[in-house]
Amino acid sequence: MSGPEHHSQVWTYRTPRARLLIWTGWVALVALFVWCWQLMTRDTIWFFVQDAPRQAVDIGSRMVPPRWEYVPELLVPMWDTLNIATLGTIGGVILAVPVAFLAARNTSPSPRLLRPIALFIIVASRSINSLIWALLLVAIIGPGILAGIVAIALRSIGFVGKLLYEAIEETDPLQVEAIEATGASGAQVLNYGIVPQIMPAFWAISTFRWDINIRESTILGLVGAGGIGLKLQASLNVLAWGQVTVILILILGTVIVSEWVSARIRHAII
């Protein structure tokens, strides 16, 4: 961050006051960092940290060779993982659509009451990671795929809802006005004026979220919500590092394939 202070005395980059403000900001940031660092590492056992490289070598040596015989056992959990992501995305999108219409300034039926509620639903869903939703749902409705699907759906509402309501607010008001002028009812204006305009965004957002959900659903099993994560948890518990390697490779492959598929779908639609 070396400013241009090595220039001649006459020309300065910013006014002295602004520069002072910015420098104070940087110093404050450094002080904050040091303070946070001390607070955070208060209970850290430095012996473990020094020992980490040895641990890393140890784990690494156990991870190879991968235990390929494990693959057949993983196929059913992988199918479950795909289902969690796909059904969860469908559920989330179905729930997100009405929320988005309530939250968009130009379609919300009551800007004073329903709009803040819809916005809160979106923020709440976005702030809480799907793993936390899964943790809660496993406690509530029991371990299994259903908890995973609901967790993915609940997390997707916020993401899809936010992007969709922004798309609704960006629609061309002239096209909507033209439909209104024909004497169409409110529902007809939505159907003919707004929906056609947001359709490309809708499909792009949904496939994008599906892609993210594939990643997220691979780890939901860690808290008991079904899928390949269950196998990961089981292998970690018995320290079967060779199996962990196989699972990670499988997850990585799935993620790459799903990213490619979603990119292709988005490309075809737009």
Binding site: T41, I45, A56, I59, E216, L232, L248, L252
Partner: peptide
């Protein structure tokens, strides 16, 4: 980018022990 935070965390916890340092 391709590894989930949670999976990285599992490994780092195994190496560095429990606690916020692994999280950091």
């Amino acid at each position: 980018r391709s590894l989930q935070e949670v999976i990285i965390a599992i490994f780092l916890v195994a190496m560095f022990g429990f606690g916020p340092f692994a999280g950091f």
